[in-house]
């Protein structure tokens, strides 16, 4: 078989897989969210017989969607910023300071990711209750998210700190730059893509996080995922769940596209190391 033929087959297989994995569930969610309650969408029909935005309006009016959106979209950016601030000193140490056991330390910071989220959540929330931090539920969840998502931020920022070139720092210093100026000219350009990536990943993880938000927050503090999971309970209404699922997904997709843009527009010479 010719190379081109193989390429073509692989290409089409990939597109098929992508379609099955991404496009079909997404389309289904959109269709389900548009099902009008006057006539149900039964298995014998390819498309819903009557389509309307009734479910969207209904969820907006009759569920805790509004406070949930507010909570999620305040919580996630706060968690992203707090996590980044907490992770940066460790990342600096792991990325720029030579000390014995550095590689082991790098590995250990990643270990929390091995434990299933729910296990961490249950025991982490018990610590929060013991510390008496649950009184301010938003703060407790923010604290928990920051701690639990820190491995991602540390990992990303460590790599970024490693990419800062010592000769740039030295050159700035040799030309009389103060500590702040050295950060601006030598560190920040190399760290910027990492900072964006860390913020975004923590944002997405936090906005999708269910276990801690549920255990610590319920019933008074709702986020979009806790709301979504509660609609999956005994009064499960698929169209309503579809609305919530889409609300959860759409901003993430937009954020991913923004990140992609930012990373592409970042100075290519920084990643190639030339110049």
């Amino acid at each position: 078989m010719k190379q081109a033929t193989i390429n073509k087959i692989l290409m089409y297989s990939l597109i098929t897989v992508c379609a099955v994995w991404l496009i079909i569930p997404f389309t289904m969610a959109v269709l389900w969210s548009l099902v009008d309650p006057v006539e149900p969408w039964t298995a014998d029909k390819l498309l819903p017989p009557v389509m309307s935005t009734y479910r969207w309006a209904y969820m907006w009016e009759n569920s805790s969607l509004r406070p949930a959106l507010f909570n999620s979209y305040v919580l996630a950016p706060s968690a992203a910023i707090v996590t980044l601030l907490l992770a940066s000193p460790t990342a600096y140490a792991l990325g720029r300071i030579q000390f014995p056991g550095r590689e082991v330390a790098k590995l250990i910071t990643l270990l929390p990711l091995v434990v299933p989220g729910f296990v961490t959540a249950i025991f982490f929330s018990s610590i929060i209750f013991q510390l008496g931090l649950h009184a301010w539920r938003f703060g407790a969840i923010l604290f928990a998210h920051s701690v639990i998502l820190m491995p991602y931020a540390i990992r990303i920022m460590t790599v970024s700190f490693e990419q800062v070139r010592q000769d740039h720092i030295d050159a700035a210093r040799d030309l009389g730059a103060t500590t702040i100026e050295r950060w601006k000219v030598a560190y920040m350009p190399a760290l910027k893509p990492g900072i964006m990536a860390a913020l975004l990943i923590v944002f997405i993880q936090s906005i999708e996080e269910f276990a801690i938000a549920f255990i610590v927050g319920s019933p008074s503090f709702v986020t979009v995922p806790t709301l979504l999971f509660s609609t999956l309970g005994q009064d499960f209404v698929r169209p309503n769940a579809a609305v919530l699922a889409l609300i959860l997904i759409v901003p993430n997709v937009i954020m991913m596209l923004i990140l992609e843009r930012l990373l592409k527009s970042a100075n290519p010479s920084l990643s190639s190391g030339k110049g």
């Binding site: 070139r165 000769d167 740039h168 030295d170 050159a171 700035a172 210093r173 040799d174 030309l175 009389g176 730059a177 103060t178 000219v185 030598a186 350009p189 100075n267 010479s269 920084l270 030339k274 110049g275």
Partner: peptide
Amino acid sequence: TPPEHRDTALCFQSYALFPHL
């Protein structure tokens, strides 16, 4: 005296030009 306060200027082997400037 630290380098930022010395009356010396160093030309680096790698040039060390700031790539974003």
